[in-house]
Design a protein around this nucleic acid. Structure first.
Ligand SMILES: NC(=O)c1ccc[n+]([C@@H]2O[C@H](COP(=O)([O-])OP(=O)(O)OC[C@H]3O[C@@H](n4cnc5c(N)ncnc54)[C@H](O)[C@@H]3O)[C@@H](O)[C@H]2O)c1
Ligand SMILES: NC(=O)c1ccc[n+]([C@@H]2O[C@H](COP(=O)([O-])OP(=O)(O)OC[C@H]3O[C@@H](n4cnc5c(N)ncnc54)[C@H](O)[C@@H]3O)[C@@H](O)[C@H]2O)c1
Lengths: 239, 239
DNA sequence: AAACGTTTGTGCATGTTTTCACAAAGCCTG
DNA sequence: CAGGCTTTGTGAAAACATGCACAAACGTTT
């Protein structure tokens, strides 16, 4: 069979779930599971089985009716679709607490995203080695990016420097950015930006906590035993 | 005016954006801006103005037509809605690299989520002080949680211990969990779970990078100057 | 106090995502 | 090789989210 052409666009919601399936499938493969049903995979990933099937159907018809999916083959197909057939080295901007923690974290490189470089603006940080990589000066970012043909950048500077960092990354040729600061950054059209904001996640949880508290107060009489709070977060389970 | 009752449920997508508006409004208030239009706030938050207005309309009719929104009042209303009128101390499970980085990070407490406790299973970690808090043993988690009436827990253990950590948190009385491990955890009904998974974010970016690469390859002749790649990530901008 | 320019709040159309439900397709057993 | 059992793949419905467009409301100016 010929390798599939770039098929119809995959819904963003599906793209966000494929990495989860991929991880679960990888774990199952490790422990010797050769075949898996949508029901089983759904259970592992904490989602609905129909969703799993629809998600996987965007990759093609890779299941066998009455049987399920071949784990190894599915892992290969998802990796191919996500573009994980080769490594994507990343450059980290900001070698502070977070930058160093990320650089030293193996789960990064293990998943195909080795740290290809770290830069900082502070001369006292430049030259030190974190996670086996020497910190270079921000001015050298272009060389760092081009030397390893890096296309993904991670921003771990203080929030106030985030836009600067983004501009530097884009100027250096990076086309995807993962922003760990709480600052909203502006980038030219065609650059992808992902954001991880701790405070936002906690505030979402606080909202649900508060609703729970209010609900409990409003139903002092009714709630005897089974607490049945709506609780359901954007991502993640709530069994 | 009497304090509003727990009004109609706010859409989850809106709940996820309110913290962003809140941060932007806080910054504007700091620099002396007393009033703001949906257009201006939208620009700052990197979203569409109509969306801002609809989102804010769930809180009530707090704007003034022809004028905009009173920044201070809006900050108060969003904080009230999100349940940020008081602090929510959190307990961190796992005092490794990440746990320590989080505990030492001020942007945590600054936003109303002080670290109320840290626990670890490793005796060599217990007793050490990180971020001004003494690490206690996992066995004492219930005391830690109840002493400060904590309802939010953060999991920063290795993935293999995540379910254990979740079980311990729930047993101790925590009702919301933020999970930093790549493991999918199961919790009883009524417990909210948020998830932050670095690898997932990077893999989503890789998908877009790969599409970009494929698209470029497919249009070698056409793409002369203006790169007009679809690029748009789930969360975050792509101006 | 009317006319004007501005900006909100929201009805409605459109787009996206989830869920249901079932025919089609495969294995296995007898 | 037919019948039964299982599980996929996918239309179609429902639920959710976004964006447009405009009437209603407000402040200001004349
Ligand atoms: N530490 C955490 O646990 C944590 C958690 C979540 C989010 N964050 C966010 O991550 C970011 C970094 O946090 P941190 O604790 O590592 O801060 P930090 O102050 O320890 O590190 C920031 C680093 O960025 C460098 N820097 C400043 N301006 C720069 C520029 N223009 N270009 C390159 N480097 C520059 C500084 O020299 C410093 O080394 C912050 O925005 C913070 O809000 C941190
Ligand atoms: N370090 C990073 O930058 C980073 C980034 C993203 C995600 N993560 C994830 O965060 C988690 C922690 O990473 P880390 O680098 O801090 O690991 P780590 O090994 O440094 O720390 C884990 C800590 O958890 C403790 N622990 C183990 N089992 C426990 C249990 N049952 N109860 C309580 N504590 C227990 C260990 O004693 C250790 O102190 C991992 O799942 C990792 O995938 C880490």
């Amino acid at each position: 069979m010929a390798a599939q052409r770039s098929r119809r666009r995959i819904p963003e919601a599906t793209v966000a779930r494929l990495p989860v399936y991929l991880r679960m499938l990888g774990e199952q493969f490790e422990i010797g599971v050769a075949n898996i049903s949508s029901e089983e995979l759904a259970e592992l990933a904490g989602v609905n089985a129909a969703k799993v099937r629809k998600d996987l159907s965007y990759l093609g018809s890779y299941g066998t009716r009455g049987v399920g999916y071949d784990v190894e083959f599915l892992v290969y197909q998802i990796r191919r679709e996500l573009g994980l057939t080769h490594d994507w080295p990343v450059v980290i901007v900001g070698a502070g607490n977070l930058g160093q923690a990320l650089a030293g974290y193996n789960g990064f490189g293990d998943r195909g995203f080795p740290v290809g470089g770290i830069v900082d603006i502070d001369d006292s940080k430049v030259g030190s080695v974190v996670g086996g990589v020497r910190v270079r000066h921000l001015d050298e970012i272009k060389q760092v990016v081009q030397a390893r043909n890096i296309s993904i950048g991670v921003i771990a500077t203080p929030g106030a420097a985030a836009q600067d960092a983004a501009d530097s990354l884009v100027a250096a040729g990076v086309t995807s950015i993962l922003n760990f600061t709480p600052t909203v950054i502006n980038v030219p059209h065609g650059i992808s930006v992902g954001k991880v904001d701790l405070a936002v996640e906690l505030q979402i949880l606080a909202y649900h906590e508060q609703r729970r508290a209010n609900a409990a107060q409003g139903s002092v009489v009714r709630s005897l035993s089974g607490l049945s709070i709506p609780g359901e977060s954007r991502r993640g389970a709530s069994a």
